[in-house]
Design a binder for these strands. Sequence first.
RNA 1: GGCCCCGUGGUGUAGCGGCCUAACAUGCCACCCUGUCAAGGUGGAGAUCGGCGGUUCGAAUCCGCUCGGGGUCGCCA
Length: 590
Amino acid sequence: MLKDTYCGDLRAADTGRTVRLAGWVHRRRDHGGLIFIDLRDSHGLVQAVFDPGNAAAHEVAHRARSEWVLAIEGTVQPRSPATVNRNIPTGEVEVIPTRCEVLAESETPPFYINEPVEVDETLRLKYRYLDLRRPDVARTIRLRHEVVRYIRDFLAGRGFVEVETPTLIKSTPEGARDFLVPSRMRPGHFFALPQSPQILKQLLMVAGFEKYFQIARCYRDEDFRANRVAEHTQLDLEMSFVDESDVMGLIEELYAGIAREFGPGPQSSPFPRLDYADCMARFGIDRPDLRYGLEFASIAEPLRSSSFQVFASALAAGGEIKAIRVPSKADMTRREIDELTEIARGGGAKGLATIGLLPGGEVRSPIAKFLTGGELRGVSTLAGAAEGDMLLIVADTREVVAASLHRVRDALGDRLGLKTPGVLSFAWVTGFPLLEWRPEEDRWDATHNPFSGFRPEDRELLDSDPGRVVARQYDLTLNGAEIGGGSVRISNRADQEKVLGLMKYTREQMQDRFGVVLDSLEFGAPPMGGVGMGIDRLLMSLAGTENIRDVIAFPKASSGLDPLMGAPSPVDVGQLDELGLRVVTDVEPV
RNA sequence: GGCCCCGUGGUGUAGCGGCCUAACAUGCCACCCUGUCAAGGUGGAGAUCGGCGGUUCGAAUCCGCUCGGGGUCGCCA
């Protein structure tokens, strides 16, 4: 090694030591005589002081520029009390070089490495190897390593076996779009990259491993979002001889531990458990942000016979009327109300009714003239409103009320500063329907995954009313994001075929797409259940970022392209020939 | 694919019809400077305003198209 000590590790206790350091010039302060260089390495930075007395070293320090790589041999000495820097961990000491060598010079970097300034993302990604030098960026990637190591240690300590599964598997057309890989051995045939190792881990259970996990890369060829990329990493896990509580208990212990080790701990422990229907009624979404309240109140009852047409017709059509009570915001500005109305419209609502209960009993509301005093009082009571509060109301179908008020609640969370950074608010959601109806395709479809089990007591409903069958499914949410989910699986062939049949698969299609699973269930499949947990989203919350690219070392841009490697790219005709492929370019008519 | 926002020296921003021969900060280069730590001082180089086309006597500024980026809806079993 060219170094025997990390810059960032030096402390007062190292005083008097002779050390060999190597790292990057973080910052240079040239006083003409004295030159200070902050030398940075993977552990942090330390100040080196070059005196003209050591002419050779001083000359190097004079020439050196930002991001040059230096090797320094010197002695650690305490700083005089007046020059101690309390702002950095190494601030009590400095290094007096006896020797200084340039290992590499550097161009001026295209953006600041020594200051946490927002830089254009394309530029950051193109020079990701420089971006990753920035301490804040690097810290997040290191955090990722620590969290994954914690997960591995935790699971290995409980008898789980980490098994790798293939990244070239069979394509299944349902669900997200697959990334395809052409086969040279069988031209015209394709592998797909896995959207998850779901089938393979179930086979591992049939194989008798009993406890499996993997830090698995998963691929989906869909458009990106702030918290969604084409390739994400999940903790994939499966257990045999378990029910819901076993898996949920294990994951809760793991995640509460992570929250304590790498953050302030979970906001509530044990994690709150919400029923899907209850959740939709109170928050309009199956992954509510529980860092704040602003729950919905149903205020339909007093309005049953209202003369206000909007309310009356919504109820007559079987819809709902719900309100969010915003404490002490009766004085909300016209502009704020207009913006929230626009947000509500985004969820399908035709408008947003507001009732401001001004102090003193006056009511500020464009719809007050349509409501009787009794109706207003009834609404206020149901919403739990007091003087000074503002009520935001949507009347429409159940779906529109949920979608619209969810957006309003989410926007209020941002605007009122209720999404406290750093707080880790976990919650389980259970009680999901197993199937949802796809009218345009005239069939049922799995709400989560086709292997999810169902409550035994709902068996009859599979024939009579499939939409009411409840899945043995559990999702874990964190601060309003779904960070994972899983289920107890179907573990016998008849039940699995029954469910696939409701999804309108023919015998042939079942055998073609799910034959492996179905066949395996005939050879002694244990009861099994597991989860797939999104590692990237978990890291986002732990690192306090809204951008998933921040937690990935080499991410794609939101366009799905890679500015660093320049991928994707055209390939040689020869490569295509071997694969039996020809590129057809669509030419737009001029 | 739809919609919204952004694109000005290396970086981050200002300018939003003539005052722009494009401003500020920082970075960069040179010199001065022995205790700074976002060192300080003096001087200097550096952008025709993403690209193309149009409107106008005149365009960084207005319009259209296009490219790139970010967000969002669709999509994501």
